[in-house]
Design a protein around this nucleic acid. Structure first.
Length: 297
DNA sequence: ACTAGCACCTGATCGC
DNA sequence: TGCGATCAGGTGCTAG
């Protein structure tokens, strides 16, 4: 569920609560939450005790919480993961791991669908080896847009599939991919290699802009499954132009947004603005089409 | 090496 | 009211 903006909201929330804190104990309540910790549950609980947190970091949708000793706690929220820091007793049904801090507070990893998880990465403070394959996200100071464009243009797949590939540019999920392509007026099945460098630059810029706007609104929330560490929802749902708006008029042209099956999930697009048909037939007929029109924000 | 498809889970909602 | 089908924002593994 959480994409880059939502994960960044969580990172900031954790930073505020973990700064200068150390762990006095850890309780694993569901084994699946630590399945990526190869040494097992008992080791996970025991090894973390006494460690002091440094500044939480993020790449794409991955979080890691470095310790001052050079190791790190790697976190992925999956589809439904949350971190909660509550002053009052809260719904504990989906609490998977409870972290006890030296200030008496507890941080809970809550995850209904258990696609998310946590594990210790030895010497992972700078960059856990487990997530070295994840590409830099557009907010990374070392993000190389020219390299990203080159890699996108080498992909033999549709544009949306490539945007969801975390190894090229990380952080973009189903929602922000749809929003990005709506802004750029590009059909999700357009072939990657047929888009110009200029078009790809516009796509990456649009993805960066929409995620930046979402972050400023505290992220996108459709329900209680995505909330910040205090249990509060973000407000970017009202900023969405395509995702989840099946049957509503396109804000640009008035055509009704359609929903289509894509990779076992849904894609939303404007049938008029994002009209270039998929398939090689269209590409063969229009091999020298000019670059896509792009919305300037 | 790259790409597509599926497995991994629980719970809310929809149609009958 | 109850039941099965469907759907949900992600990643990793594996077969081709």
């Amino acid at each position: 569920m959480p994409e880059l903006p939502e994960v960044e909201v969580v990172r900031r929330g954790l930073a505020a609560h973990l700064r200068g804190r150390y762990l006095t104990g850890v309780e694993v309540l569901h084994p699946r939450a630590v399945r990526r910790h190869s040494a097992g549950i008992d080791d996970f609980q025991a090894t973390l005790e006494g460690r002091t947190f440094a500044e939480p970091r993020r790449r794409g949708k991955y979080l890691w919480l470095p310790f001052t000793d050079g190791d790190a706690l790697v976190v992925h929220l999956g589809m439904s993961g949350q971190f909660r820091v509550d002053d009052e007793p809260a719904d504990d049904r989906h609490t998977r791991v409870r972290f006890h801090l030296d200030d008496g507070r507890q941080v809970r990893f809550v995850d209904q669908r258990t696609f998310g998880g946590v594990h210790l990465s030895v010497e992972g403070a700078e960059l856990p080896t487990e997530i070295a394959h994840i590409g830099r996200d557009p907010f990374d100071p070392e993000f190389d847009i020219e390299d990203a464009i080159s890699r996108f243009r080498r992909r033999r797949s549709g544009v949306k599939r490539a945007l969801l590939d975390q190894a090229i540019v990380s952080g973009i999920g189903n929602i922000y991919a749809d929003e990005t392509l709506w802004r750029c007026r590009i059909h999700p099945e357009r072939a990657c290699e047929r888009l110009s460098r200029h078009a790809w630059r516009e796509i990456i810029d649009a993805a960066t802009a929409v995620m930046k706007e979402a972050l400023a609104q505290g992220g996108t929330s459709f329900d209680a499954l995505y909330v910040n560490v205090n249990g509060e929802s973000g407000y970017f749902e009202r900023g969405l132009a395509a995702y989840g708006r099946e049957g509503s008029p396109c804000q640009r042209c008035g055509a009704l947004i359609v929903r289509e099956a894509f990779m076992n999930r849904s894609s939303f697009r404007c049938p008029r603005c994002q009209r270039t048909p998929p398939g090689t037939g269209a590409l063969i007929r229009r091999p020298h089409q000019t670059g896509p029109r792009v919305v300037k924000s």
